[in-house]
Design a binder for these strands. Sequence first.
RNA 1: GCCCGAGUGGCGGAAUGGCAGACGCGACGGAUUCAAAAUCCGUUGUCCGAAAGGGCGUGUGGGUUCGAGUCCCACCUCGGGCACCA
Length: 954
Amino acid sequence: MTESATPPAQSPANMPPYRYSARLAAEIESRWQDLWEQRGTFHTPNPAGPLADTARLAGKPKAFIVDMFPYPSGAGLHVGHPLGYIGTDVYARFKRMKGFNVLHTLGYDSFGLPAEQHAITTGIHPRINTESNIANMRRQLRRLGLGHDQRRSVSTTDEDFYKWTQWIFLQVHGAWYDTEQKRARRIEELVTEFDKGTRPTPDGRPWSQLTTNERHQVIDSYRLAYLTDAPVNWCPGLGTILANEEVTAEGRSDIGNYPVFKRNMRQWMMRITSYADRLLDDLDRLDWPEPIKLMQRNWIGRSVGARVAFSSSAGNIDVFTTRPDTLFGATFLVLSPEHPMVASLTSPEQRDAVERYCAQAAAKQDSERQDDSKEKTGVFVGATATNPVNGTQVPIYVADYVLMGYGTGAIMAVPSGDQRDFEFARTYNLPIVATAMPPDSWFEQHDIAPSANCSTWPCAFTGDGVYIDSANSSVSLNGLTSIEEASTTIVEWLEKNSHGQGTTTYRLRDWLFSRQRYWGEPFPIVYDEDGNAHAVPESQLPVLLPELADFKPTALDPNDADSDPIPPLARITDWTQVTMDLGDGPRSYRREVNVMPQWAGSCWYEMRYLDPTNDTHFVNPEVEKYWMGPAHEGHTGGVDLYVGGVEHAVLHLLYSRFWHKVLYDLGHVSSEEPFHRLFNQGYIQAYAYRDARGQAVPAAEVVENNGAYSWNGESVSREYGKMGKSLKNIVTPDEMYEEFGADTFRLYEMSMGPLDASRPWNTRDVVGMQRFLQRLWRNMVDEDTGDLIVTNDPAPEELLRHLHRTIAGVEADMDGLRFNTVIAKLIEFNNALTQHVTQTHSSPRDVVVPLVQMLSPLCPHLAEELWARLGHSDTVTYEPFPVADPELLKEDTVEIPVQINGKVRGRIVASPDADQDTLVALAQAVDSVAAALAGKQIVKTIVVPGRMVNLVIK
RNA sequence: GCCCGAGUGGCGGAAUGGCAGACGCGACGGAUUCAAAAUCCGUUGUCCGAAAGGGCGUGUGGGUUCGAGUCCCACCUCGGGCACCA
């Protein structure tokens, strides 16, 4: 049997004419999909604007359910792609039946590198490709029966979408971060403060004395979107800047294998670091998976410590440390090779060595420098600095294990308290001084005698110890026992004596926001003759991406590190040069020729679903308030459920939170967070097979025999991972529609396991879900005549009780997105119904109706069909979800296990609320229990009423 | 190296600290059929046993508890994230 073989084709000739087969399913499904579209079944009402229908939303709570929108790939879908979309569709349909006004749709993230790269290889314009890909994906997804409001589907490349991406950029550009109020404010308010003198200008001169250019520069330095020289990966051979992910470990381009150079270039940045604390702290309020929160916390990387000034001949050297308590143990300083003071500190004797070392470091790739398996290297600069706590002269080194981009790019090295410093000190024979006496257990663990003499230590000690040798005339840490206490003490001293201050640094960097590409949103920015950036007025948005026949980047001499990129847009000189009136008459300006990164559109797209055609606002404020809502009890506001892959844990989910907070601060949105509840769906994985030469062979043709795999008689090896064209293991939804129908396919994907777990695809297993639907269909429809076999006779009580147990369980599991156990419960109930139908040849309406209702979120087409056959003229979509009757949930009797010493030895049947004495008496009367008890003494009796009895004997 | 997450039948997976293996696949047996497919019914953790029944079982080793897949400690394996962040 092959792993993913298709079952033998059914023979329609011998099949009963009304069997629920793939053929019948296809007929039902396409009919209902057309009906839904004609009737606008999934059109969701807004409280205002063109989509308003206040009557339909009256009294209903709202549920805004969003999938992470896809990039419209040309490769088409495989069965792994729709997993999350099916999950959200089932949930959305469930919530509709629970009386919620549900908004669910899907847009397309169409700008960016993949589309552009594809265009470059094929020579087809990205717009053409993008549009045909979107059309194809819409077709494939429509066939799945997703209940989306199609009127609200948007694409980030639509002009009336990216108009608002540009508008939001201008909001960010037009804002600054007030560190006192801890929020973004409009740049005009900053100007007012400067003008009034309530806020001093950077150099202290009155605002009125600054020239226009000077004012412009001061204001620009405060903006949340700003220009700066930032190091980038410049690849002249491709004519473009590359993302870190696109550069190989050897420092060459992933595509084309050209050299890549680190260079500073003028780039747009977003001041996300201003929001570091809020992005970190607000995580606590979100209903997100803990691992994702943890990844964001690590990414932001807040570390609390101190800056300490060490004086030197070239001025003060600021170091950052998280362990100010170890200051007395600092025996040398280390500067990053890029540190601006390196040159001025270097002595003439050491100049050659230092320059050589820095040049080597500059030539290295980040990945090389960060390979911590290698030995630490560094060079003495020939100068010393003074430790402010004890006046010690400590040598200054330059070493590439210190990074310029973190803290101050300079550290104080405490070899006794930091493993990296310890290794460096051992390599260069630098002194190691203990400032804390480790506990005896630490010495035992390392098999050495307790001693403060670090010469015997095998490594640094980083825990809590008793402080020693840590005092000067005005402060002493000696005798303290905790890092926290010692740190507080020494920071107070540093601040009092102006040697430093407590401070917090972050691993998070500002966001590099420009790309030297074509397929992205143009910046709404122009430059004047002095090079000052100006915002394009709102009234002139969108700044359209100009049509460009040759959209390829200009390739340059691959080895010329000093060349400059020529972004595609720079070549259209009649576009880049523009005359406009920015309030001081028509002038000539030069447009920004970079474009925004792929992330820009995805930072806010969900809000455009709310009001997709609005041409005066990015979203009508009333509509925004209704769907995104302000925070309330246990809810941060924003999207109610956001489902997508874990790969967006940091970048997209951090950038979008940042933009949302800026919009909140400026009063444009009513919630502080965009996504209240986040759920990461797992991935569908698949087996792939390779022959002896390592070539992938078609997985569908591989034969398994006793755990060995072969293809065409040749033995092949199996691996487990992604589905991919090159692995020849792709299974498409279209194949599943063809063989089983969309409802069976949906059901299988939901039944494979919990939604957040990854699982292997097995086409062989799909048939189980089809059999279930066949049995369910047969329980209501005669396979030979097509007649309904449903009667109005009441169901037997036992079946009714089973139904209500099922309702209660299904409802709870639906709410928790546990669709796999929902399906198990429905199958169990349907199996019980089958027994009844087999005996009576009829199906009681009072259990069939709720069964169809419960099935409808999972298998909407089949449910609609049965619903109509049961005599309803309207869709089942908005029917109330069945409610479990508490009376029918109570059992008259329950079977209870009787344990002897924790092992089951018998069973009793009793009333669920029988008391302890009754249960024990019943238990002792059971033969097997009595036998086990014979001659023994019961020393303890544990009874959980309605659940179990345990007799402890000896 | 550090930080997360996960280990349950032949396979995917179920189990508020209370009958381990729900449900599905596969396999085996039977009904139906000229025959097969499809469909329906039954069996299916493992070992001993003819059976009744019993022993053993949730990665490994300890612990808490009347009772542990579930809680605690240590370890092993796999998956993921970060990676000289001072």
